[in-house]
Design a protein around this nucleic acid. Structure first.
Lengths: 123, 123
DNA sequence: CTGTATCCTAGGAGATACTG
DNA sequence: CAGTATCTCCTAGGATACAG
């Protein structure tokens, strides 16, 4: 590429940058992954909560809400008591499993590289 | 997988979660990508600045410093005036280009999925 | 050309306790 | 069981101006 060539229009709203938004949320990609790969595309709140060590109830519901409005999953409330709520991946949501698996897969196969990273004592 | 099986030790410090750290920083992956794919592994500050529309001088140097201490790149100052500083990818840094390309590549090939995302009017 | 020093803000994230 | 309501903290990220 010649110097000065603007290349693929590396704008602020290009697709690479937009996909990063998914991963900038601490839990979104993990919820997607847990739902698809480990829970068969559909699960109740409690199961999700237990599938993601460290997540709080608040962050889980918050994340799920955002994902719902984003169109990544649907929420279904069973009118029972006690309440049972099921979250199901949409076809769109399922599409985003691929890049996540790509990334997680790479991570699992390259733990040594991740270990080699020096965390750099914060400031 | 049987219900209750703890599976791949999905702990808080598992590799998938650690690789997410790279992408949780707004600019790190883009610097890595620009440096490797567009600038041949080595570039001066000004070039990087112009290669990443929207980044500020402050965020660039901050990101570069973190990446340096992480071992992803090296910084070389030419004792000239005006100063010239070159950032070069380390072998370790180069290893992280792969997952980034994987992700960005997927994004470019799936713009339609990204477009389908409803941003959900912030609360 | 590079880099630093301030100052400032939005909002991500967690802890806790409560309601139906 | 699922979800909400507060509070609080913190720090990434950005704007701006200055300095070698």
């Amino acid at each position: 590429m010649q110097p000065g060539t603007p290349d693929h229009e590396w704008r602020e709203d290009c697709s690479p940058r937009r996909v990063l938004a998914i991963f900038s949320s601490k839990w979104t990609s993990m919820v997607l992954h847990a739902l698809d790969t480990r829970l068969g595309g559909c699960a109740r709140t409690g199961v999700l909560l237990r599938s993601l060590p460290g997540i709080s109830k608040k962050m889980l519901t918050q994340t799920l809400r955002e994902m719902e409005t984003a169109g990544l999953l649907t929420r279904h409330v069973h009118g029972t008591v006690p309440p049972a709520v099921e979250y199901t991946l949409t076809p769109l949501g399922r599409r985003f499993v691929e890049p996540i698996e790509l990334l997680y897969g790479w991570a699992r196969e390259n733990e040594d590289a991740l270990d080699a990273l020096r965390s750099g004592a914060r400031r």
